[in-house]
């Protein structure tokens, strides 16, 4: 039954729209993401970047169009729990559970959703905490950690579900410059490991370094999809050119 469909795109989006009442947040969006590909979504505020990324794990269900992940059609009939085992997500504000320790944050979903034993989940969590560079913080509560450390926990927590796709929704937007360096280096490392990644960010250097392709959005539409070299040197549209000018000015 299961196709070993490595040639199929990991994510395939066709004519996808999302409405908030009258407001068109996403306007007939089309794109594919290959297995292991790193996509960075850029665009001015309110252009629909976050909405786009949230439709990919149906935290914001789309209204029109089709979404395929790993060859599966994703719609209202899809079991959201299965989908989210496949697609992990990291938020701007970390959204760690403050009443649970770092370790408990990491093992909650593996135990409750994937029914791992505590020992199994703990071993996994310790491995990922090691990977994000905070193995010694496992027994602390989130409130005791710095912003950068909290975001690392959030990344480890998402990785503990061993997803095939990772979504990052402006993961460094709430961090100070020093912390940004740490988190970005972890994301670099993840990128090297070949996990399919879709990331909304304003980190230009990071985007340029890791992105296989840039999706540039404006007013709910995808304006262009280009490799980073092309995007940062010779953007194909005036809107992208304006955006880059503004970003570089600051």
């Amino acid at each position: 039954m299961q196709h070993e469909a490595t040639d199929l795109p990991m994510i395939s989006v066709r004519g996808m729209s999302k409405l908030f009442g009258e407001f068109v947040a996403l306007d007939r969006v089309d794109f594919d993401v290959s297995r292991g590909e790193k996509i960075v979504v850029l665009g001015p505020s309110g252009s629909g970047k976050s909405t786009l990324i949230r439709t990919l794990n149906r935290i914001e269900p789309h209204d029109i169009g089709t979404l395929n992940i790993n060859g599966k059609l994703i719609n209202e009939k899809t079991d959201p729990i299965q989908l989210r085992c496949m697609v992990g997500m990291v938020f701007q504000n970390y959204n760690l559970f403050p009443h649970l320790s770092v370790l408990e944050n990491c093992i909650l979903a593996p135990m409750r959703v994937k029914h791992m034993s505590r020992a199994e989940a703990t071993a996994l969590a310790r491995r990922y905490l090691e990977q994000v560079g905070i193995p010694d913080q496992a027994d602390k509560y989130p409130i005791q950690l710095s912003g950068g450390q909290q975001q690392r926990v959030a990344i480890a927590r998402a990785l503990c579900m061993q997803p095939q796709v990772m979504l990052f929704d402006e993961p460094t937007a709430a961090l100070d410059p020093e912390a940004i360096v740490g988190v970005v280096s972890i994301m670099d490392e993840l990128a090297e490991q070949g996990i399919t990644t879709v990331c909304v960010t304003h980190e230009m250097a990071f985007s340029r370094r890791i992105a296989d392709r840039i999706i540039f959005m404006d007013q709910g539409k995808i304006v262009e999809i280009t490799p980073p070299e092309t995007f940062f040197t010779t953007p194909q549209t005036d809107r992208a050119q304006n955006f880059l000018n503004q970003m570089l000015r600051y």
């Binding site: 085992c85 970390y94 959204n95 009443h99 959703v113």
Partner: peptide, 30 residues
């Protein structure tokens, strides 16, 4: 309770029941 808690919990695939009992209620209880 921060709405991000529900968002974060559902992004991890937790069921409605677990979202309430494991994430929201313990924080609301305090």
């Amino acid at each position: 309770v921060d709405p991000g808690q529900e968002l974060g919990a559902s992004a991890l695939g937790l069921s409605r029941r677990d979202i309430y009992w494991r994430v929201i209620f313990p924080q609301a209880f305090r």
